[in-house]
Amino acid sequence: MSPLPGFPGSGLAKGLAVTLRTMTKKSVTAQYPDTQPALAPRTRGVIGLFEENCTVCMLCARECPDWCIYIDSHKETVPAATPGGRDRSRNVLDRFAIDFSLCMYCGICIEVCPFDALFWSPEFEYAETDIRELTHERDKLREWMWTVPAPPALDPAAEEPKELAAARKTADKLAAAQAAAQPDPQPGPQADPKGEDS
């Protein structure tokens, strides 16, 4: 029937051979609830929140294409650190919630966060029976934060990460200052707060 080279029907036989061969091989199905999938480190499972880094700048909420991030906050006055100094106001986070029934996992909020408060977590088992329960509050988001894997290691020849470089520079400076102050221990306390600032 088939106009293939060889005897008529050789294509049909070839197809049968393929399926038969596949049958004898081990199947690749992962039995999910019994065996957990091995996920890539950058899997987009769910978004975790590291509250301490959040400054309530609202960038994530504004950039979100479908407006699924809810943030409430209030301002708090921090008394001046030094006598005679000015009081500072600070944003305190009251509520941070993401509605995962709206979220489309674009990751723009994570990209846009200037203070590294949002992270992708590979966690994916957060199905709910009611769509309203898919709006997860900050405590849940914080729990997910602990499932965020360590960032992948850099290439051996890569430039040192900025924060590490800064920390190392400070440490070096500190060490140098300490070394300089070894005979005379007075400048030590002056150098310390400087190092912690940066």
């Binding site: 399926t19 038969l20 596949t22 049958m23 091989k25 199947s27 690749v28 199905t29 039995q31």
Partner: peptide, 13 residues
């Protein structure tokens, strides 16, 4: 089962 294994699946388990 046969169809599943011919398609590299496990079928009902």
């Amino acid at each position: 089962k046969v169809m599943a294994h011919m398609q590299g699946r496990l079928g009902p388990m």
